[in-house]
Design a protein around this nucleic acid. Sequence first.
DNA 1: AGTGGGCCTTGGAACGTTTCACAACAGTGT
DNA 2: ACACTGTTGTGAAACGTTCCAAGGCCCACT
Lengths: 341, 341
Amino acid sequence: MAAPSMKDVAAHAGVALGTVSNVLNHPEMVTERTRKRVLDAIAELGFVRNESARQLRGGTSRTLAYVVLDTRNPFFTDVAAGAQQVADEAGRALFLCDGGEDAVRQANYLDLLEQQRVEGILITPVEADDPRIAAVVARGTPVVVVDRGAGPDRCSVSVDDVLGGDLALSHLLDAGHRRIAFIGGPRAIGQVADRITGAERALARADAEPLTVLETARLDVAEGRRAGERLAGLPAARRPTAAFCANDMLALGLLQQAVRLGLRVPEDLAIVGYDDIEFAAAAAVPLTSVSQPRQLLGRTAAELLLAEARDPDGHRHENRVFEPELVVRESTRIRPLGGVA
Amino acid sequence: MAAPSMKDVAAHAGVALGTVSNVLNHPEMVTERTRKRVLDAIAELGFVRNESARQLRGGTSRTLAYVVLDTRNPFFTDVAAGAQQVADEAGRALFLCDGGEDAVRQANYLDLLEQQRVEGILITPVEADDPRIAAVVARGTPVVVVDRGAGPDRCSVSVDDVLGGDLALSHLLDAGHRRIAFIGGPRAIGQVADRITGAERALARADAEPLTVLETARLDVAEGRRAGERLAGLPAARRPTAAFCANDMLALGLLQQAVRLGLRVPEDLAIVGYDDIEFAAAAAVPLTSVSQPRQLLGRTAAELLLAEARDPDGHRHENRVFEPELVVRESTRIRPLGGVA
DNA sequence: AGTGGGCCTTGGAACGTTTCACAACAGTGT
DNA sequence: ACACTGTTGTGAAACGTTCCAAGGCCCACT
């Protein structure tokens, strides 16, 4: 048999349909006695509200969604945790959608969410200037771009990735490195491009070789290992003495493979990661990394989103930019001696 | 102005409402010319289908959800990635809901998903025998329990956690440890309880001290660090020589803090983790860990769920149990000498 | 020219809820 | 007894879609 509806509940309790609705939505305007009869009927039939019908009639949803670039990157789950806090406080549900660094899947999610009329969308886009996002915004669904800047037509929260790249390279240059590799990709990902820009900006101020860019297909541990093989395969004379990785996943993979293939870190190869995920500090050689305020990013994004959803007309778009910080650890520190533990 | 509906599109294109629906759902039965007119109108008005209305009328949804125990644990995002693959292949969207190890939040998500009439729910429950789950199943929404066994009234995929605990402890006992701590909690989490059971089973076969259980409030890195402090604070004579952690997050935190406080791993303290997440191998001291087939778990769960959703009556519930494997690394290996890299 | 048959298109019912104007009823004060 | 008030409950409309039976049109064939 089909799921019971309010009509069934009403019949079973011997009241009108509207009364059932009142019990659920305005319990104070129904007598104790009637209310109990209705609630009993609900329990007895196992009635479950139909959210579709509800939303269709009411026009409103209390659901937010975060379309994540890649849920397997702990950076994003930390951001999501920040957003979740705010959603909880505001009585909203938050759905996470894993884009898996795949533009098509991300676009599919975006379409679906718009069709579901969610209250608002957080998104870390694969491609920053995806016209689909602009279209969603134009049609009226609040969108906040996370971890990327955006134009004046929507809100965004981000961290200055150019500055981050600059910090990382400045640190390596200060330590005396002159042949430095960048590992990350694809370049279409805005964060990657910006970090390269920042790195080259720092490089331009120094007397060093141009940045060797090892472009990767994804930003995960496996690609980091692959990069490690490529670096270890180079003759020492041409091998970069330091690597700046677009994120910590790559850096951890690189570190792992480099060590396995006999390179000493940091003596033969210094490594700087990005994001300062929890695991960076616990790595074989604790990782120097560019730290971003992850949870704050998520909290702020969700707050902006809710503000826009609550007052679409009065809302003014904001593009909040946070500053990254360099956290120096062993992977770039020339150790005085033996150095274990 | 309100979002345009099919009615608006129909008026704008000068056709009947039903024709617009046909263009969208059965394009082959509409003339080229008419179709174009309608599609143009859709583009011009920025019409977006209303999924609520659609679902209300059709009664079907093509959305799955995975209520995760904690998205910040990479184990679960790996499981989710497996489920996502299957969902993609089947043309389904998968929403991730972060329970954050919080029973209340998890229950809220469960309610919402049922009200939204999702096609099916994957869940890694905080409490294994939550009656709410049974209720959802009884009312007809397909549910597959992930990473926990379940009764005959629903499907589940899991890994034998008792065996996992046994493997871990057997390994430590073989290495000569006699005073061993278990770190993890809360005990209400089924996986934790089972791993303890397995550990004690192995212990019972040997002539060793009973398991010292350090119960934690959560299964994250911070709690691991806290446990590290507690262990390091003990006088060496009473301090366990080995620790078995309920998951790798705890193990990594423990490792980090133990090393910081001057304990050598594995000489002073051997550590076994659980899950074999990607970061375990890249840790300061590569972590011995009990490995589970994460993606396979997710794939299998999603396949069972879809099978049930497609044929609710013909479906027979299955409780698939996979076997864990111990991956031995440096954190439990007595190193012959100096031992770096 | 008339008829039969395809092919498109049409209009309306139905999905389950919320909301709102209104009916029913009981109690109060005259 | 009556009108009035306030409180509860009722019934119908509306939300935007899909599906289906039925209608309209045009062409080919007799």
